[in-house]
Design a binder for these strands. Structure first.
Lengths: 317, 317
DNA sequence: CTTATAAATGCTCACTTTGAGCATAAATGG
DNA sequence: CCATTTATGCTCAAAGTGAGCATTTATAAG
């Protein structure tokens, strides 16, 4: 029993806070769809995946990674539309191990490297900070209802309806921001995502709904968003995205950008206070057209003893 | 730029409820350490990892999988002590994709297949159902304190102390059952796990503390336990382990087995009730030497709309 | 200098959830 | 019949949450 060789690629979803929305690092590829920083895993050179990943990202995006965690390993045949410069045939299947990396600020990147783009260019339906996105009512929900009706049997119709209800919170159900990946997968299966048509080698279906990425990279980003939106609630992981000192409003804006909806300010602060994660520096930030806010810093040393310990997300409205 | 080939293995951590502790399926290998059901991923034969995995498990353990989810992809050099029948040299590095599978009951397995073993044979320090396990006070904590003192610099000593405190809840900190993997990794780095000595090709260090598994399989099981202990709180995943009808006490025992500590019965029920996940069948289970308990069933159709939706874990004592 | 406005921060209040434990009900085994 | 065992119902205080009003301290306009 011998193991057929497989090519292993490493992908990084590098995220930063950004001015008014969280950003993801992509590498433009001329006329082709942009891609995530990507590189082969070379077992001879790299003792661990993480070491290999850091090397590739710094090489391709001229960028040093800080916080890194493994996301998921993708390997479905048919979903890995080949990147131009990599072989992808049946003999040498490519599987890609996706990583999530968080970085303190969207530092300017040297030319030739990556570019920062807002999450919500790729996932416009995920941004509820200014209320329900129009794209849902105007395009997605009608298309989903058509897709439900198109089902071949009654049983499948019910299954499709339940799935759409759950993931998109239809018919009065609530929107669960953590289901970002589920929503992407549903849009993919229902043909609303350009990549789906591309992978089936058909003419593009609805290319205008959102921006595509190379291969299955948008799926990997959706995985990263889901992970981050979940993890923020039980690990003090937001602080990996913050500068050394920050105002509480700024922190709240970053959290709102991540979860995709507005929070109740006073309750956010009360809960944050109880965690003990931040301490005031005594310094103030002036010049924002209002009462100056105190600058805070993250206390890395707060080794919380017991249980879950993240940021409370007191939804507003 | 071409991708060096790597051999990809698939591992399943198959779990079932078991009489008095959760069970994991392992494949005995004669004189060698038992292993998880394991098989190569053959890209030519399997469109997805999951398909490949199901095939291997049914072949090796004569067992059909139900619920399956991907855990993590392991590939550190030096941690994959070779399985007898697989090549593992520098040219062809083996990486393994671990999966968690849950199954309704520990059905009897045909001979030649796998065997069920209690989680706590491999992780005796994780079972706090009857109070703090003696092995912690008697062996692990003293050894950890020695390991802390052995650090070469003061900085490292502090780092080791903080890490041990966090993961094992030393010095009055609370025990967090979800840190199962962290604890295993710490015991591994501090030399308390037989596999660590084996991987360094040294004489065995403390082989008596717990049972080993082949390769890095015990690490994969620890990953699975951590995942399950976390996920049980926000997804109705326990029910994948339950028979069609069950008493609430039985459900509670399974949950206690998973989290590793006793729960407050009345509060467990109250919380469960609010979720709406179970409904009474009207039938009773008699003959257990007390008032008969009603039999309940899981309502798969309760498509909970919004937020997190798992089992509440009201710790007792 | 005064006043409108914006932003930060403080505080209250009703309501829900949680942790703990007492009390009662319905079986089984002498 | 009575002790024992297990199931189930109910109460109560403490802690946590959701919502919103009130006050403070800046900047900008008149």
């Amino acid at each position: 029993m011998s193991i057929p060789p497989v090519a292993v690629g490493l992908n990084a979803v590098v995220m930063a806070a950004g001015e008014d929305a969280p950003q993801v690092l992509v590498v433009p590829r001329g006329k082709e769809e942009p891609a995530l920083p990507f590189g082969p895993f070379d077992p001879a050179r790299h003792r661990t995946f993480e070491i290999g990943l850091r090397e590739w990202v710094s090489e391709q995006a001229h960028f040093q990674l800080g916080y890194v965690e493994q996301l998921y390993t993708f390997g479905d045949r048919g979903r890995e539309a080949p990147l131009a410069d990599l072989p992808s045939s049946d003999e040498a299947r490519i599987i890609s191990i996706g990583y999530l990396a968080l970085t303190q600020e969207a530092a300017d990147l040297p030319s030739g490297g990556g570019e920062w783009h807002s999450w919500y260019r790729f996932f416009p339906w995920e941004d509820w900070r200014a209320g329900k996105p129009a794209i849902l009512d105007d395009q997605i929900e009608p298309a989903l209802r058509r897709w439900i009706d198109e089902a071949e049997t009654d049983g499948r119709r019910v299954a499709r309806r339940d799935r759409a209800r759950m993931t998109f919170g239809l018919d009065g159900r609530g929107w669960n921001e953590e289901r970002c990946l589920d929503r992407y997968e549903l849009l993919y299966s229902s043909g609303l995502i350009a990549e789906a048509a591309r992978d089936r080698k058909e003419a593009q279906g609805m290319p205008t709904i959102s921006r595509s990425l190379a291969s299955d990279h948008r799926r990997i980003v959706a995985t990263a968003i889901s992970r981050l939106r979940g993890k923020i609630k039980y690990r003090p992981i937001v602080f990996e995205l913050m500068p050394d000192v920050f105002t509480l409003s700024c922190l709240q804006q970053v959290v709102e950008g991540i979860v995709g909806f507005p929070l109740h300010k006073q309750n956010f602060r009360r809960a944050l206070d109880r965690t003990g994660f931040v301490e005031g520096t005594g310094r103030m930030q002036a010049g924002t057209g209002g009462r100056p806010a105190e600058l805070f810093r993250y206390r890395r040393d707060v080794l919380r003893d017991g249980q879950a310990t993240g940021i409370s997300i007191p939804r507003s409205r």
